[in-house]
Computed example of a mutant assay.
Amino acid sequence: MAFENRRERERAARRQLIVATARTLAEAEGWDAVTTRRLSTEIEYSQPVLYKHFGGMEQIADAVAIDGFAELAEVIRAARCDAAAASDALSRIAQAYLNYARTNAAVYDAMFTRASALRFAAQDAPPQLRAAFAELRQAVEGVAREQDAEALTEVFWAALHGLVTLTRTGRLRPGYDSERLRLLVNQFAGGSEGVAQDRH
C-alpha cells in the first residue's frame, strides 16, 4: 500500500512538472514553442513518459488552463473579500482580473483563446472553471438588483475579457485603462465610485 501511494505521488509530481514546465515555456516564448519534444528535453523525460500523462499538447494546455482558473478564483476571492461595499468589490475584482490576465498572458491564452476540449457552462465543467465563475458571480450578485445575476455575470466577464483582448492587441487607446474600467464598473454597479487611477 505504501509503495502504491509513493508511485501515485511520483506520478502526480511528474504530471505537475510537465504542466509547470509547459507554462514557464509558454510565458517565456509563447505557445508555439511548447512541443512535446521540447518539454521532454526540458524535464529530461522521454516523450513516451509525457504521453503516459497526456494525450498531446492540447491536453497539456488544458491542464495549464485549469490551474489558471483555480488561481483566478483565488485572485477574485481575495479582491472581493477586501471590499467594503458591493460596488467596491466589483471594482476590485475587475482590476484584479485585468492584472491577472496581464501578468499571466500565456496562461490566460490557454484559458480563453486557444482551442480547448474543456467544457464551459456545463454540469461536467471542471470544478476550477465553476469556482472562478462562482467567485465572479458573488461580486456581481451584490449589484444585480432585479436582474438575472447569471446572465449579468456572463456579460461582465465578457466585458472584462474584451478589455483584456483589445488592450493586448493594441486596439484601444493607451493610457485610459483606469477610465475604461471605472466606466464599466459604474455601468454595472449603477454608482459613482471609481477605480484607482492606475494607468497602464
Rank of each mutant, 00 (worst) to 15 (best):
V75Q: 04
L72M: 15
T113A: 14
V107H: 06
V64T: 09
D109I: 05
A94H: 10
R77M: 02
M111G: 05
I76T: 14
D82V: 03
A79K: 05
D109L: 02
D124R: 04
A79D: 04
A70I: 06
D88I: 05
A70L: 00
L98I: 13
F112H: 14
N99T: 13
Q123R: 12
M111N: 05
A106P: 01
D88R: 06
A115V: 11
I60L: 04
A65H: 01
G68C: 02
N99C: 10
S91D: 12
H53W: 03
A89Q: 08
A61C: 08
S87F: 05
A110P: 02
A79Q: 06
Y108P: 00
Q123V: 13
Q59C: 03
Q59H: 13
R119Y: 03
V75M: 03
E74S: 14
L90A: 08
D82N: 03
A94S: 15
A106Q: 05
M57T: 12
E74I: 09
A70W: 01
F69Q: 04
E58C: 00
N104H: 15
G55W: 03
G56M: 09
M57W: 03
D82W: 00
A86P: 00
G68Q: 04
Q95L: 11
A65S: 08
V75G: 08
A94Y: 08
R77N: 10
A61I: 05
A61D: 07
E71R: 10
Q123L: 09
F120N: 04
E74H: 08
A70M: 04
A85Y: 14
D62C: 06
R102Q: 10
F112E: 12
T103D: 13
I76N: 03
I60W: 02
A85K: 11
A115T: 13
A115R: 14
A73D: 07
L90H: 01
N99I: 12
A117R: 13
H53D: 07
A96N: 09
M111F: 01
A73T: 03
E74A: 15
A86Q: 04
Q95G: 09
Y97D: 06
Y100S: 08
Q123G: 12
A125C: 08
A105L: 13
A78H: 04
A73H: 04
A125N: 08
L98R: 12
G55D: 10
S87V: 14
A65N: 05
R80T: 02
G68M: 02
M111S: 06
E58F: 00
L118S: 12
L72G: 07
Y100Q: 09
R102F: 06
A105V: 09
A85N: 10
V107N: 06
A122N: 10
A121Q: 12
H53R: 02
A110G: 11
G68R: 01
V107T: 15
